[in-house]
């Protein structure tokens, strides 16, 4: 065998491409969260549409239901994750300046993390 030939396999040289080395996992995560959000969104809209939303006690009762609380937490995780991935792609496509682009991506990540944790905490406080 040629001494100068690389020892790395073709798979190794194909993996880890892209500017952040995580292009494929970003793409897959966007699709997986999208698939999760299909049933979760249908559940959420029907829950809100059928709920007597004006009544505080019945709203508490609805969110306190263990099944609803579980689905709420899953909806929150999938929604904020999916929103972050989507906004990142939009920012990457339209903002040419690297510094502005990175700053905007980090800011959206922070904002979505804050309001995501805030909503999850609210659900937990209602349930517990």
């Amino acid at each position: 065998m040629d001494k100068n030939k690389s020892m790395t396999s073709p798979l190794k040289s194909a993996k880890g491409l892209g500017s952040a080395k995580h292009g494929l996992s970003h793409w897959i995560a966007q699709r997986v969260t999208a698939i999760a959000l299909v049933p979760l969104t249908i559940w959420f809209v029907s829950l809100i549409a059928f709920m007597k939303s004006s009544n505080y006690e019945s709203a508490i009762e609805t969110v306190s239901n263990p099944l609803n609380a579980t689905l709420f937490l899953l909806l929150i995780i999938a929604t904020f994750w999916h929103a972050q991935l989507g906004l990142q792609v939009v920012i990457e496509d339209y903002i040419a300046n690297k510094m502005t682009r990175m700053t905007l991506i980090i800011i959206t990540k922070f904002i979505l993390a804050i309001i995501g944790v805030l909503s999850a905490l609210s659900v937990l406080r209602i349930v517990l």
Binding site: Y56, A59, I60, V63, F72, T79, F80, A83, G86, L87, V90, L112, I115, L118, S119, L121, S122, V123, R125, I126
Partner: peptide
């Protein structure tokens, strides 16, 4: 993008309920 901004509505509703 609009729905990302709209998530604030869900957060406000949940925080108010809590």
């Amino acid at each position: 993008i609009a729905l990302s901004l709209g998530t604030f509505l869900i957060v406000i509703w949940l925080v108010a309920l809590a």
